[in-house]
Each structure stands twice: as structure tokens, then as C-alpha cells.
Design a protein around this nucleic acid. Structure first.
Lengths: 218, 218, 218, 218
DNA sequence: TATGAATGAGCATTCATTCAT
DNA sequence: AATGAATGAATGCTCATTCAT
């Protein structure tokens, strides 16, 4: 059976509850991203989601709640993307540099992609109003990916391919060497950074990282 | 003579025009920082500045203009602070590591201090509404300080104390190694990071930096 | 059954949408009439209509739109009243003078009545801001009634009871002879003009009119 | 001595008090005419008059007072213009029709000219707020000119050139036959009425007037 | 459950008016 | 006498939220 079950022809197929809730959360994140929290109006969110305004309230009590849920959902997505990228280091292959550059390059796309950037911007912007969101979001992004990366680095250290006794710090710095320059060059995302420049950033980051952390400065 | 000259006791001493304009810009930045752009209301800004609401409009036509000017003024301040810190590298002394750690430590206080963080948060948050502000703010913060730092690194390279042919990149990465971990550890500023931990971040950054950029990995 | 059906006692019986829109337009015209366009505030209009302020905006987007619609609706009403009066000339009877005096007298009540006068005042007052309204309002008042009157006069001319080859001009002058003196005597409506004086104006107008337009100066 | 007396070269010659008061009244009328009473703002009036806002208050206490004086001054001007036109009937010459058509034509220009129209519009518009102004303005326009015209008609009646025992009424109707059609054709002044059409209106008015009031229907 | 309609509260902005110079 | 600057009081309009269907 299709999700729309016996959907009568004509009217747009009724979406199930779940479907609608998801549409609202997606729409909310999109609108919050382009208007900010206070600047977003529930009316616009409802339109973006294709539902009526009270429906938004039926599903997510109020604007605050809506914001929290939309942010959390977006953070979950970003987390999943990032973790998937890091997984690639489970099988680093012979060429560690190449593997790190590959991962770095991909992380630059997820960490500094549209969704991740909006997430960061909204979190930053609402620190005063929603201080707890910082924890939720960072927990699913920087922190979680730092852990995952730390795990990989620990394995590599054990295998003698990295020289560090603090893999967490190595991960922290690895990420910093990637995202810091990227944010600067893209001017917080307002300037398009081409694939070549992105790769160069990754290469430079890995270069510095390996000089500092590879045994024998390899 | 005090500026208020023979100020009769009682009413608050009248401040001059300049004084008032400055008070408004300061108040505006403070309020925008804690409420966000849309969340801030001009009434509150006026109160913070100790003037009546229309006075705000007399000096700065409208909310948008007020925002732009407040942001620019704050960016100027942050820039000045940062540049002052970097100056210290003009006389690095014998112990380069110590000098870099000192600068790093101080940069962590200015770059991740309250004002700089609010500035970044507001810029991020209003990217969609004020895309040009990104340029203004970044130009006076990351970019400008990157240049200044690059200048110092170039001199050090000439003096044979750093090993790099791209001082700009070295500066970029130096900053990234400082601010990246700081933002992570302070959870975007919501968590207090003690002096000890701050110093440790600086030390770690310098450690990695020197392993990558000091001749002979000194 | 009353429209409010089984309206529980207590709250005021809910009016339908149409009802509310009409109430708003009526209230708006009343308030505009006594305050002028700029002097009227939407709050007062809302109160006059017995609804909340945003309801006014829900139905009629903004003050300008509200004004246009209120004016048009009022013009429609005045037009209907006037046309009904002129209809009486379809059956003039034997005594033309009496018929004309009757019509004149009644036109004085509609043309110079409260609504018509407010309509004219507002149109006049807002010529600069709403130049197109002059067309709308005049089209439904002076012009339309001039046409209707012209039609009647044409018939009368055909029947040999009026001597004119330009019934439109006759109508124009007939109206002028009625409303001109009325406006002067009532000092634009600020002075009460009694029934006797009104009749006298009508009689004088018809007298002059017939001297000019009746065959043989009857 | 020039009014600006020993005006030092350079700065605009200082105008005397009288001059300034007049400039304010003129500016006020101009601004009220294009914005309406409530829509006009004192700032704009001050600019139009070329003085600073407080100067307006120094000369004319408040907006209400300013309005009254500006209206009265404008009414005086219109009155003078109109009376000058009517004077022409003191020497009607042999051709009464021609004289009346001439006067009618000129009255159409003054009575329905820009200033007179604005005056009427403002009076109408502010009937509710300034009911006494109706008397002031009408007294200097319709009424006064009606009287003057009545005087001339009385003389003409005495001379056997007009047939009426109520010259006031004749004057009232004469004016009505002129201004009524003019207002209608010009759509309250929003449509340009050419010289030819204006003359035609005057001719038609005089035609009807003489049929009604000339002895032997001459 | 989903929605058209209604509303209380709030906000940017303007304006008449007043000081202090 | 004339003005730059300051302000209390509105006003148009929007928005989050709630009814009633």
C-alpha cells in the first residue's frame, strides 16, 4: 500500500501525520534560517510547509517549541552526514595523507554546507534566548564528530601511524585547521569557494596536521 | 571645568551630541547582542542609552542604519584590540614559543571575548538580511588580524625563525588553532573556560604550530 | 430563527463574515467623515465597527484600501438614493412644475444629506492623495444622476413639455440650481436648513429652470 | 533703502518679521493644500517657508492657530480676486449678455482656480474639526461675492435691464449656474478644462440666466 | 484533525511641541 | 528673534496565539 493508501483522485493525496510534522519541521528550519528566530513568522512557516497556521500549533505547541525541535532535527541530520564522512577513516588504506585529505575535503562540504552553517548561525544568534540549545547542537556536531574523529585517530596512533597521546586534541585541531580557514575564505558563507580552493584548504590542513602529528614528520 | 560647566545640581549633566550618539551606538550593540536584530526593540535601546526613543531616530534614521553603525563601531573596537595584541610580536625576544603563547593567550581573550563573540553571532545571524555586513565585519576582524599576523610571520621567516613560504596561510592556521578549539570548549561561549584551560589551548596551538612551521621542528 | 440561531445569552451573537466586513466599511466611513483621512485612526474605526483592530486589517489590508472601499460603498449608496428619486420623473403627471419641485426637494435631501456631503468633503480633501477617487465618486454621483436626469428631460423634450436640444446641459443646470444655493445657505452643512427653506430653494430652482426651458415660458 | 537694508553680502538677506510671518502663512497654506490638515507636518511647512520649525511656533503658537490664520489669509485673497471681477459690472455697457459672459468667464477662473479650490477642499475637510472656519471662509467667498453680485443685479433691475425682485436670489443662482457645471466638468479640478469649454459653460449659464431674468426674455 | 477568522500585545516610526542656546 | 536637539504621545501595522467549526 502506498502511504496515501486509498487516496481518492483529485485532492492532493493526504499526507499522514508523521509526514506533516516532518514538513513543518523542515519548513520551520528553512524559514528560521533565512529570517532568524524573531524575524520568522509562523504564517510563513505554515506556508512553507503547506499547512494552515493552526496546524503548526497543533503539532508543535508554540514558536519556541517549534524552534527547538526544528533545530534538533537539523542537528541530527548534520551529525549523521558528518559521522558518515568520518567512517571512511576506518579503512584508511596505505596512503594516510590521501585518506585524511579526502575526509577533510568532504568534511568541508558538510561542516560548512548550507544546513550546517544555518544551524551554527541560529545557535549563535539565539544563545541568549536558548542557551541550552548550544549544548544540544554542539553535542551533535562539533563534539560528536570530534569524538568520532578522536576514535579514528586513537586507532591510528595505536597502529603507529600518528604520533599523539591525546587523540581528542588532535581531532579538535584537525577540525579547526579545516573549518577555520574555510569560514574565513568564504566570509561566513557569503562568498562562493570553488572546489579547487576547498581542496587546497584541506591539503594545507592535512599538511600542517601531519607535520605536527606524523611520526618522523612524514 | 567639567564639561557640564556650571551644571546646576539636580538634573543629570547634559551630554554633548557626540556623547549621545556614542551612547546610542553602545546601547544598541548591547541590546542587539542580547536580543538579536529582530528581537531588539528600539525602546530598549533608547533606555540603555539613556535617551528618548525619537532621539535614537534623530541620530540614526532607522533600525537598520542603527544596526549597521553599531556593528561597524563594534568591529572597529575589536579590530583595535586585536591589532594591539599582535603588535607584541614585533619584538618576539629570544623565546619564540613563549612569545607566541603569550600572543595566543591574549588573542583568545579578545577574539573570543564577549564583544567579539556577539559581533560574530550577530553577523552570522543576519547574513541573510545584511549580507554586506559580513564583509565589513570580517574585513576588520579575521582578515585584518590575519594580515597583521602574516606580516609578523613574514619577518620571522626572513629571520629564519619560521619555516614557511606562505605566511598568510601560517597566520590563518595559527588563528584557526586558537579559536577553533576555544569555541568548541566554551560551547560557543556558554560555558566558562578558565584561565588555565585557556592557556592550555594556546600552548597546544603553539605546539602544533611550531612542529609544523619551526625550522628543524624545534 | 434569529441569524444567531440558538445564541447562548451572554456573548454578543457572532456575526458572519459579510456582516463584519460591512460593519467595518460603515464604521470606516463614519470615522473618516468626522476625522478626515489622516485624522482617522484605525483603532477608532475598529471600535466603531465593534471588531478588533487586526480584523480590520484582515478584511481590508491597509488604511488606504479601507478608505477606497469605504468611499466606493458610500458612493454606491448615494447613487442608489439619487437614482430612486429621479425615477419619480418617469411619470411626471399633468403638473410638470409640481413634479420637478417634488424631485428637486427630494434631491436636496439626498444630494445635500449627511452622507453625500461627507462623501464630497472627503473626496475634495483627498484629491491630492487619491486623485482617482474623484472619478469613482463623481461617476456614481453627479455624473450618474446627471445622466438619469438627462434621460428624463429628453423624454419630456420629446413630449414637447421641455424646450431644449441639450438635455444633458439642462440636467447639469437643474442640479446646479438646486445644490449651489443649498450649499451656500447651509454653509456647507454647518447650518441647519429647515424644510420650508429647502422647499423654497427647490421652488426657486424650478422657477428659474422652467422660465429658461419650458416652451412658452410656461 | 531696500527691505534688506544694509544686508551684508553673502548670507541670504534677512527678511523682516512681517516678511517671515507672511512666508510662513503662505507655506502653511501650500502644504495644507497638498496634504490636508492632519497630513501636513509642521516640519514641511517650516521648510516650505524657509525657516526653522521653532520659528513657526514663535510666530503662530500652534498648528491649529497656524491653520486658522493660513485659511483666513487665503480666503482674503480669494475674496479680493472675486470682488475685483464683479466690479466690472459697474459699467455693464450696452451689451448685458456680453458683460455677464465676461464676468462669468472670469469668475470661473477665480472661483474654480487652484487657491479657491484648495480653500474649499480644506474647509470641507475640516468642517468637523473647525466648524467656525466654514463661516469665516464662506463669509469671504460665496457670501461676500453673492452680496457684491446682488448689488450689481439690483442696480440692473432698477435700470430695467433685469427682471427680478430678489437680486440676492438671482446672484445665488447665477453663481450656481457657473460653478456647479464647472465642478462637474473638471471633476473637482482633477481634469483640465480648456478655455473654450470654460467659455461655453459661462455662455450657457448666462443664456439660462437671461431667459429667466431678462425682461421680455431678451 | 485541520482550518478560516479573530484578537491582545507589541514595535517601528512620526509628529507636535518644548528647551537651551 | 531664531534654531538645533530632545521628547511624550500617537499611529499604522504585524504577529503569536486562540476559538469555533
Amino acid at each position: 500500500m502506498t502511504p496515501a493508501k486509498t487516496a481518492a483522485a483529485g485532492r492532493p493525496a493526504p499526507r499522514g501525520r508523521i509526514d506533516k510534522r516532518q514538513a513543518i519541521l523542515d519548513g520551520a528550519f528553512a524559514v528560521f534560517a533565512r529570517r532568524g528566530y524573531a524575524g520568522a513568522c509562523v504564517q510563513e512557516i505554515a506556508e512553507e510547509a503547506g499547512v494552515a497556521k493552526p496546524t503548526v500549533y497543533n503539532h508543535l505547541s508554540d514558536k519556541e517549541n517549534l524552534f527547538r525541535h526544528a533545530m534538533t532535527a537539523a542537528a541530527d541530520l548534520v551529525m549523521a552526514e558528518n559521522l558518515a564522512v568520518v567512517e571512511r577513516l576506518r579503512e584508511p588504506g596505505d596512503d594516510l595523507r590521501a585518506a585524511l585529505e579526502d575526509v577533510g575535503n568532504r568534511l568541508l562540504h558538510t561542516c560548512c554546507g548550507q544546513r550546517a552553517r544555518s544551524l551554527r548561525a541560529l545557535t549563535y544568534a539565539q544563545l541568549a534566548a536558548f542557551p541550552d540549545l548550544a549544548e544540544v547542537v554542539q553535542g551533535r556536531t562539533s563534539e560528536r564528530i570530534g569524538e568520532a574523529l578522536g576514535d579514528r585517530f586513537a586507532r591510528l596512533a595505536l597502529a603507529g601511524r600518528l604520533d599523539t597521546r591525546d587523540p581528542a586534541r588532535a581531532a579538535e585541531q584537525f577540525l579547526a585547521l579545516l573549518t577555520g580557514p574555510m569560514e574565513a575564505r568564504s566570509r561566513l558563507g557569503t562568498r562562493k569557494v570553488g572546489a579547487t580552493e576547498t581542496q587546497e584548504i584541506a591539503r594545507a590542513a592535512v599538511h600542517t596536521f601531519l607535520r605536527a602529528y606524523a611520526p618522523g614528520n612524514a
